[in-house]
Computed example of a mutant assay.
Amino acid sequence: MKLLFRSDEDGRQVRVIERRWDGARLYYEDGALYTHVDAEGANLLRYITEMDRALEDTKNVLLLGTAGGALATQLSRRGARVTTVDNWSMTFEIARRWFRLPPQVECVHADAMQFLRSTSRRWDAIAVDVFRGVEIPESMLASDIGALLTQVLTPGGLIVWNVADSPQSWPTQWISKALRLAGYETRLVSVLEDDAGNTLVVSRQTPAPNGETETALGPEVAKTPVA
């Protein structure tokens, strides 16, 4: 193994490593593997493959969370317009230098929630892959997250949210319920990688029978686990 980059700034430990025998590169943050690509920058993590598959019919995609940019690269290489948002500006340099992030991918340095609250743009799909270590930041689980995502989606848009946990876990169930309350049909895609589990919450917007949708969780839902 060859260490290409390390950083211990901003309360995070980031390591970029290259395997000498095949040129594959890996991005670790706080001990968690976020990105794994081959020498040409093609993704090697199954959960990224499944996110890409879920997004295969979309042409204009917003990514919240970047790391090494493997998903952004996959989407861009097949012709999608990609905007990726991250609150750590160094991640864009890492993704371009070490992981072959295409130059046409738009990179925005911003907090994901602040970006959702401030932008007036819209996308066909949103992929959410925001973590500190393997935990989703509490700020991403705000009671109005469904409304915030809805306001930046085109009608009938798609959300693919990665959770580093099982389908039965509290975060997965919370996110699924939050999106259902905001007017989405949701399905859970379980992904296993070397005995570690990820779940994708795949959600598409559908109109409610009365033509309206709920766009926020009530406080009792926001504060308590979903059975």
Score class of each variant (00 low, 15 high):
T49A: 14
R53N: 05
L64Y: 02
A67E: 02
T66S: 03
K59W: 13
L44P: 15
V61G: 01
G65P: 01
S7T: 11
G65C: 00
L44C: 14
I17Q: 02
R15T: 04
A80E: 04
G68D: 03
A39C: 11
D57S: 14
D38V: 00
D10N: 14
L3D: 01
N60G: 00
L55E: 01
K59H: 15
W21E: 15
F5L: 10
L26D: 03
R15I: 09
A39R: 15
Y27S: 06
T49G: 08
K59I: 11
A54S: 10
E40T: 03
G31Y: 05
D10L: 06
I17K: 02
R77V: 13
D8F: 08
L71S: 02
A72E: 02
I17R: 07
R12A: 05
D8R: 14
E29A: 09
L75W: 07
D10K: 14
L62F: 01
L45G: 04
A39S: 14
Y47E: 07
F5I: 11
E56L: 14
R78A: 07
R46Q: 11
R25H: 10
N43Q: 10
T58A: 08
E18N: 11
A54L: 08
T58R: 09
V16H: 05
E56A: 15
R15W: 12
E40W: 09
A67H: 02
L44V: 07
L62W: 01
Y34K: 06
Q13H: 14
G79S: 09
R15Y: 11
S7K: 03
N60Q: 05
L75E: 04
L33E: 00
N60Y: 07
G79K: 10
Y47A: 04
G23Q: 08
L26M: 15
L3M: 10
I17W: 05
H36K: 12
G79R: 07
S7E: 02
T73D: 03
I48A: 06
F5Q: 04
L44Y: 09
A80R: 00
H36P: 13
Y28F: 14
Y47P: 00
H36E: 07
G65S: 02
A67T: 05
L63D: 06
L26I: 08
Q13A: 13
Q74T: 15
N60S: 10
A54I: 06
A54V: 10
R15G: 03
Y34Q: 06
R6E: 09
E56T: 13
R46M: 08
D52L: 11
E56C: 12
A32G: 02
T58K: 11
L44T: 03
L63M: 05
R6G: 05
A32K: 05
N43P: 01
R46H: 13
R20A: 12
R46L: 13
V61F: 07
T35H: 08
R46T: 12
